[in-house]
Design a protein around this nucleic acid. Structure first.
Lengths: 325, 325
DNA sequence: TTGAAAGCGCTACCAC
DNA sequence: GTGGTAGCGCTTTCAA
């Protein structure tokens, strides 16, 4: 490993001087600077971040905590976060919590042990006690909060929009799929949909589900049509479940959208590849990730007047599982 | 921040002693140990990994370099890696390279700067010059190599299997979709398919594509049926493209699998949610991730006789886009 | 069985 | 403008 000492020796100056040119602060004579630069290039030196981090008590690392990168909504978030962060010179320490509190605690702890300068968490099972004690910039992603900066989409409005869409397009016996109870955003969109459905002149029923997983989605879809075989409009808890429902409807010989309309939630990339393509409520996941990263960077830099909360717009994406008018 | 000094003071011992109980080495009297443990608990102390890392010149961090987490094949790999690694007490520094050599170099450099103890890379655009100079355990994931430990699935065999399947099930005018030229595994499976097709008594044609992205998949599918409208069997370059092709075939009024059979590659989770469900060649992505992590850990620990290379089996998953016999 | 102290690579303060 | 050096939190000799 080549260290600052080697560079100093090579350039015939002191380590202090090398450090100055490295960090571009303090006075350094033009030719001294040149010598140092040459030595750096010559030795192919790059500073040890660990030593820096130790001294300055802060790294260029940021912790990102996700429920499960395997759920196609999260890679988008993660990518948005990374793209913004890496551009600003930060690197990502990644953890998947599976909404398991112990894993979450473990990751938070190692984030701290590694001197991260901030944390972004998209976890729902948040135990505020840890976060409270955390003396670190924190931003919540895909989750609202009164206590922390947060970036999230308007779930309630999204739920309303989904319901309104099906109602306007003529569904009369709507089935609303309720996502996992412990996932806050799932409940928000559920509430929004309920509000809208309650005010309208339609029958509706609710199917309770406890997961978003690919493995189980098919099961929920079957259960749905077993229980509510005559439904003519389904509001899915997310796109995975929505795609599974489309699939199952076709399997049972229903015509989409004539016999049954289906609307998803999230707008994951594969929704436009389903057949028929899935109408859905879009959350701008990638942009949410970017915004969260920007917000975090601003709070790290202690910029004044940083908004506590960014609510991203939700949007109807009309494709082929809803009727044309 | 509570440091080892605080603990030492609280316990009435020296920092050396605290360090000894922390690392469980050297002699420590039973009651001294007890006092220290109590102080640690009392102060809720956990050691600063950065300081440790600096002194020992190695961290508990591992760098993971991926082309793009947004491509659904990679979250599975990543999750496998993480599950295995975190269990062994390692944490993940994550980077997406987009197959861009500069990003790759940047990430590698910061991995090194942060004292990672090893690197796993699933990048194809590998510039061996950097890796050669790297004095660090490295394992290649989803990529074969003679020079480095690697975990990958048998692409050639997979390609063969895909072709053989379509041939056996009666396709006579097969279209083979060739994946991006710079992606090694894509070429392996392509070669395997070519081999098999060449030996068989069928016509076939090749469609060249340059990406795996969701955005463009639809375009490839359209191009395919525009150019080869009478094809009765398609070997897709991966499942994303496969799903897009299924979609487009249906759109054009073709019956699947009667008019055209389609076989994908990877077995990403959403393949079983497509309609009809996609027959495909499965790569055990999650397990590949785990194996890569295990392999890395073993080489880090310098265990003797570590295999240089692990080839994972590839497997036909028959679903609804191929005929039943 | 324990403590003192050097030193990991770097930054920042204080002299000159 | 530049160099010497203390010190970031920890581990590991070396002595006692």
């Amino acid at each position: 490993m080549v260290t600052i000492k080697d560079v100093a020796r090579e350039a015939g100056v002191s380590v202090a001087t090398v450090s100055r040119v490295l960090n571009d602060n303090g006075y350094v004579g033009a030719d001294t600077r040149k010598k140092v630069m040459e030595a750096i290039a010559e030795l192919n030196y790059s500073p040890n971040e660990v030593a820096r981090s130790l001294y300055k008590r802060e790294s260029r690392l940021i912790g990102l905590l996700l429920p499960d990168i395997t759920n196609p909504f999260f890679p988008q978030l993660a990518r948005g976060v990374e793209d913004e962060l890496s551009q600003a010179g930060y690197r990502l320490l990644l953890g998947n919590s599976d909404e398991n509190i112990q894993k979450e605690l473990d990751y938070i702890q190692t984030f701290v042990q590694n001197n991260v300068v901030g944390i972004i968490t998209a976890t729902n099972h948040v135990d505020y006690k840890i976060y409270e004690a955390l003396d670190l910039p924190l931003v919540l992603l895909d989750r609202a909060s009164e206590n922390y900066p947060a970036v999230f989409a308007d779930g309630r409005e999204g739920g309303r929009l989904a319901a309104k869409t099906l109602i306007e397009k003529g569904s009369k016996r709507i089935t609303l799929v309720k996502g996992p109870a412990n996932i806050k955003p799932a409940q928000d969109r559920f509430q929004g949909a309920i509000e809208e459905l309650s005010q309208a002149d339609v029958d509706f029923s609710v199917l309770s589900t406890t997961s978003y997983s690919f493995e189980e989605a098919q099961g929920w879809a079957e259960e749905l049509f077993d229980k509510f075989s005559d439904t003519d409009g389904v509001i899915a808890s997310n796109d995975i479940v929505g795609i599974a429902i489309v699939h199952e409807a076709l399997e049972r010989g229903k015509r989409i959208p004539d016999d049954v309309q289906i609307i998803g939630y999230d707008d994951i990339p594969q929704s436009r590849l389903s057949y028929p393509t899935l109408s859905t409520i879009r959350q701008p996941a990638y942009e949410m990730g970017r915004e969260a990263a920007k917000l975090l960077i601003r709070t790290i830099k202690k910029e004044p007047g940083v908004e506590q909360t960014i609510q991203m717009p939700v949007e109807l994406v009309e494709r082929k599982t809803t009727r044309k008018d």
